[in-house]
């Protein structure tokens, strides 16, 4: 349960590079101001394994495998507001550049027919999440409430966005804060 007056926030990285989380940390000393208003549930910084009921869920990275789907669904179920943070979450990003390739052919080439490969085998450990045939931005898998574009979004953009949201304003990033790259 959230401390009185504080918003509970969960974050996670799916098919992302943690760049967005680095950017989130980059808000530096403003993090303390943020912590006055929010407390964290599952994030890469806490060791909570599953997201509980939250006010805000922030997700970096797109959806590229079965585990991503499970985590995303868990977030959607538990978070009142879901935010896609960063190019990969918003557009599929770099991982989605494989969408034109046939997954079967890819696996075949990488694990079986690549020259120099001896006794190649496609990994089949049940602990490894299976890849989807295409990489999707979050909004193609669940309903997403807000988007913060950028690769990664700047710390200023994240800060502006969150402070607007927490203060109950419609978040607006002006010139220099909305960036797609």
């Amino acid at each position: 349960m959230a401390e009185a007056g504080k918003l509970r926030v969960a974050t996670t990285s799916l098919a992302g590079c943690f760049g967005c989380h680095m950017s989130l940390l980059d808000i530096d000393e403003r993090l303390f101001a943020l912590l006055e208003k929010v407390e964290f549930d599952r994030t890469p910084l806490t060791d909570i394994k599953h997201c509980g009921p939250c006010d805000i869920g922030i997700i970096e990275g797109g959806v590229c495998n079965a585990e991503n789907v499970e985590v995303l669904r868990e977030f959607r179920k538990n978070c009142k507001i879901l935010i896609a943070m960063g190019a990969c979450a918003v557009t599929g990003g770099l991982p989605a550049q494989r969408n034109h390739l046939d997954l079967g052919a890819c696996l075949q080439e990488v694990y079986l027919t690549e020259p120099g490969l001896v006794n190649g085998q496609i990994p089949n450990d049940p602990e490894l999440p299976l890849p989807l045939d295409q990489v999707h931005p979050l909004h193609e898998v669940v309903k997403v409430d807000y988007f913060i574009p950028g690769c990664p979004p700047s710390a200023d953009a994240i800060w502006k966005f969150l402070t607007d949201l927490i203060a109950g304003r419609t978040p607006r990033l002006g010139h220099g804060l909305i960036e797609y790259d």
Partner: peptide
């Protein structure tokens, strides 16, 4: 969307489905 991967890995366990 997991069918290709299932086929390529030969997996059919619970985690190989959504």
């Amino acid at each position: 969307a997991l069918a290709v991967a299932r086929q390529m890995t030969g997996r059919d366990d619970a985690k190989a489905h959504l």
